[in-house]
């Protein structure tokens, strides 16, 4: 077993959290809450570590002179924003400007690209994966889209907007999603138990 001490700690903490969820014993519940608080702070620290990891990658590229310009710009943007956020409050003009004129447009632009990608994928779907399921998939997508809009001069499409679309979304789609989520829940339970048993530690120490 890799790292027996940390594995034992992980198993112990996991066991307490699990039992604290199911058994309403006050001592156990309080202990669970305390452990969760620690975990919350740990998660906040992990966000900072992620920023460091990102920086490290671009620093290596910068020093290796491999697309150094892009990486340098990204590093300046990352840590510049960090310092800006520390120095100026959230509602200051500098932070608002950064957010409105840089972060928001980039995010929205990427969503626009995603829209084009998805429509393009839908156009190609019948070629890449011809078959009954693709026909069903495309037909359902088109009906849901049409049902969510109003036609010029007509308004909401009768029957489709008020009956078929809600039925498609709430019965077959929701039922399928629930089925998938049940499977995912079973998989999550299995993964959780493997972690609790200390058998699922692909990482090192």
């Amino acid at each position: 077993m890799k790292a027996p001490v940390s594995t034992a700690v992980a198993i112990g903490v996991g066991g307490v959290i699990l039992l604290g969820y199911f058994l309403p014993v006050p001592y156990l519940t309080n202990l669970r809450l305390l452990l969760l608080q620690w975990a919350v702070f740990l998660a906040a620290a992990a966000l900072f570590v992620a920023a460091l990891n990102l920086s490290q990658h671009h620093w290596v590229r910068l020093t290796n002179r491999h697309e150094a310009g892009t990486s340098g710009l990204l590093l300046i943007a990352l840590w510049g924003s960090f310092v800006l956020g520390l120095v100026y409050p959230l509602h200051s003009a500098a932070v608002r400007g950064l957010f409105r004129f840089l972060i928001l447009p980039i995010g929205v632009a990427l969503l626009g690209v995603l829209t084009v990608s998805l429509i393009y994928a839908a156009l190609q779907m019948m070629r890449r994966r011809p078959g009954l399921f693709s026909v069903l998939f495309l037909t359902t997508a088109m009906l849901i889209l049409l049902g969510a809009t109003a036609l010029p001069g007509i308004g909401p499409i009768p029957f489709l907007s008020d009956t078929l679309r809600p039925w498609l979304a709430q019965v077959p789609a929701a039922a399928g999603a629930r089925g998938i989520l049940l499977g995912v829940a079973l998989g999550t339970v299995a993964t959780g138990l493997r972690i609790l048993l200390g058998s699922d530690r692909p990482y090192g120490e």
Binding site: I119, A122, L123, Q124, M125, M126, R127, P130, V135, L138, A141, M142, L145, L146, A148, T149, A150, L151, P152
Partner: peptide, 25 residues
């Protein structure tokens, strides 16, 4: 604008789907 985008997307999907289906066949 949203309504027209949806209509355009549906029209593209229907046309391309039909075309690819026939082409594949």
């Amino acid at each position: 604008g949203y309504s027209w985008v949806v209509l355009a997307a549906v029209a593209l999907m229907a046309a391309a789907g039909l075309y690819n289906l026939l082409l594949g066949w």
